[in-house]
């Protein structure tokens, strides 16, 4: 039922642009490094610097420096693009009037990066989140996840992608109210076809990892907001996704709990190398981010690396253009 309905449609244009071409030129070296010796790894920063510059140029951000090169050097995956969005536009019809939620967004996100998308309310953060997560279709433009054009996927492949490759975290936690914490976490594993034993073992392990092993048999209604968000984080990791998308994960939490959740996300990002993309209003998120993307009115204002951002919290929102 509804087979085609859910499949992504949109631009089928997968032609690489100039910047991509340049990036791909460096690819053989990079690919070699995956299996390479320590010797080849030393060459890596330079290669990566080139690739980053190309990627950055497409976004209009400043060239990568040795810092990101060095960071990428100890992690080969650092230079591989897990998400590439090309000219994403999204227009909603509201009462016959077009609402332009996104007006052409380009963004490339490396594997293992921690990205924060900031911007005022209504700027299009959640819309961008939905496009990257395959939860909605762009009106125009293409999103590549791990080099796969999402517009080309049918409903079954899309469901597989959502199940295995992407984990979702929401502002309102969105746990299934009738299920216990443990059952909430095993649900994506059920969808992935894991055995009951695997489910329980992994579920317990994940709950321990996010620090609520002792509440695993509680229903969401019996947990605090912070605890529910921890369950949601554990659930997002259930099938070892490559990307975790978090839409305002701290939006419904107080400052202290929000900080704990941010620290937890950062810890998971560091430990398992999962790419984290958050849409947020929360300045506390800036400090743990590798890059920060500012959007306003459906466009990317600027993209900055953490070390380029002067963290004197509070003055940041209005930052330079």
């Amino acid at each position: 039922m509804a087979r085609e309905n859910d499949a992504m449609t949109g631009s089928k244009d997968g032609t690489p642009n100039a910047a991509e071409g340049a990036m791909q030129a460096t690819a053989p070296v990079a690919a070699g490094d995956a299996t390479g010796t320590a010797g080849t790894a030393i060459v890596n920063p330079a290669t990566n610097g080139g690739a980053s510059t190309n990627g950055g140029a497409a976004n209009g951000s400043s060239p990568a420096t040795a810092v990101s090169g060095a960071r990428a050097a100890d992690n080969y995956y650092g230079q591989e693009y897990i998400v590439r969005a090309k000219n994403i536009k999204k227009t909603f019809e509201v009462g016959g009037q077009p609402v332009h939620a996104l007006r052409g967004v380009d963004i490339d996100i490396r594997r293992g990066e921690y990205i924060s998308i900031m911007g005022p309310s209504g700027s299009g953060k959640s819309t961008l989140f939905n496009m990257i997560g395959g939860l909605d279709k762009p009106t125009e433009g293409t999103v590549f996840i791990d080099e796969v054009d999402m517009a080309q996927l049918d409903a079954f492949e899309l469901a597989w992608l959502r199940c295995r490759k992407i984990g979702y975290i929401f502002q309102t936690f969105n746990l299934i109210p009738v299920m216990t914490a443990l059952e909430n976490i095993t649900l994506p594993m059920i969808f992935a076809g894991a055995s009951t034993d695997e489910q329980l073992e992994k579920g317990r392990k994940l709950l321990e990892q996010v620090g609520i092993g002792h509440r695993m048999h509680n229903k969401p209604s019996q947990l605090s907001g912070g605890q529910q968000q921890r369950v949601a984080i554990a659930r997002s990791l259930a099938n070892d996704p490559a990307i975790v998308l978090a839409d305002e994960p701290t939006g419904n939490l107080d400052q202290k709990t929000g900080k704990e959740i941010i620290d937890l996300l950062k810890k998971l990002n560091k430990e398992s190398g999962v790419t984290i993309i958050t849409a947020t209003h929360d300045d506390k998120m800036l400090d743990v981010s590798d890059r920060i993307v500012w959007v306003s009115d459906g466009r990317i204002d600027k993209i900055k690396r953490r070390d380029e951002v002067d963290i004197t919290l509070g003055t940041l929102e209005g930052g330079v253009h």
Binding site: Q24, P28, A30, A31, E80, I145, E147, V148
Partner: peptide
């Protein structure tokens, strides 16, 4: 990018 050697990631159904 390992795309040159590995090709796009495998998406299952």
């Amino acid at each position: 990018m390992a795309t040159m050697s590995a090709g796009p990631a495998k998406i299952d159904r």
